[in-house]
């Protein structure tokens, strides 16, 4: 039986549920779970003050319900288990997570999966900026794992990411894959300015069609259908990433960013061209 946490009040103050994760709460008696400290504004309060608690997390599953837009850090640093969110969450969802699964039926804020090292995150709605990104002053963003977003994403997704996959069903903002070290970003809607700026290696697929606003430090490398595409399509379909229009023909390949190593790849639909 899963542990159900239902938010009952409607206050706009930020709530941070640091440590409320299946691997941490498993085996904890219900009274202790109710006393688990979380941040509410500038105070530390027991979990039971903000959430109505039902069930137990013995099967390593936590369900969140109610108004969660200002509930931040859901699933942050989680290492195992499953979190299911019915609604929209705040910032830092799945940040620094190292294992397990998180599913969100609505939207999520900035920093989804920032610096995550493994695990699977899937969001039906849209997300904010800096998906899978590195925190300020940090050298690496996500180093493994998968982030699937049904809707659109904001700016600087995959900043300094080292490995792992980010797939965005809708559009994405500016500077996707900024300073990317390696890994894969796929965007099925339109794309903001300067994707792949300072990328070293890694793959960015911009499959929204239409012109792609690339920097002058990217160079056209050819037009063909890469073999990896069928593999990644099959794998993402298997994990439930559906409803997007996968490109069927050849793709255009650009190499860059020549300022930093230049081994990165940007793939666009055939004849997409530069903006």
């Amino acid at each position: 039986m899963a542990l159900l946490l239902r938010r009952t009040d409607e206050s706009d103050l930020p709530i941070e549920v640091i440590g409320v994760r299946p691997d941490r709460l498993r085996g904890m008696p219900p009274a202790e779970i109710g006393r688990f400290p979380i941040r509410h504004g500038n105070r530390t309060v027991p979990l039971a003050e903000v959430f109505q608690i039902k069930g137990d997390p013995s099967d390593e599953r936590i369900d969140f319900e109610g108004n969660l837009r200002n509930v931040h850090r859901i699933g942050a640093q989680m290492s195992a288990g499953r979190i299911v969110v019915d609604g929209c969450t705040g910032w830092h969802l799945a940040a620094q997570m190292s294992g397990g699964t998180i599913e969100v039926s609505g939207d999520a804020g900035d920093w989804v999966g920032a610096e995550m090292t493994n695990g699977h995150v899937s969001i039906c709605g849209s997300v904010g900026d800096l998906v899978g990104a590195s925190y300020p002053g940090s050298r690496r963003g996500m180093t493994n794992g998968t982030i699937l977003v049904g809707g659109s994403a904001g700016a600087e997704i995959g900043r300094s990411m080292r490995r792992g996959t980010i797939a965005i069903g809708g559009a994405c903002g500016d500077h996707a894959g900024l300073g990317m070290i390696a890994g894969t970003i796929l965007v099925f809607g339109s794309c903001g300015r300067y994707p792949g700026a300072e990328m070293r290696r890694g793959t960015i697929g911009l499959f929204g069609g239409g012109p792609v606003p690339l920097l002058p430090t990217f160079r056209r490398a050819g037009r063909f259908r890469p073999q990896f595409l069928a593999l990644i399509e099959r794998e993402l379909r298997r994990t439930g990433f559906a409803g997007v229009d996968w490109p069927s023909g050849k793709l255009d390949l650009y190499h860059g960013d020549l300022l930093s190593l230049g081994k990165g790849e940007i793939w666009t639909r055939e004849g997409g061209g530069l903006a």
């Binding site: 930020p14 941070e16 200002n70 931040h72 800096l130 300020p136």
Partner: peptide, 8 residues
């Protein structure tokens, strides 16, 4: 990189 403090 914390929270949307201005709105909160």
């Amino acid at each position: 990189a914390g929270l949307p403090s201005a709105t909160a």
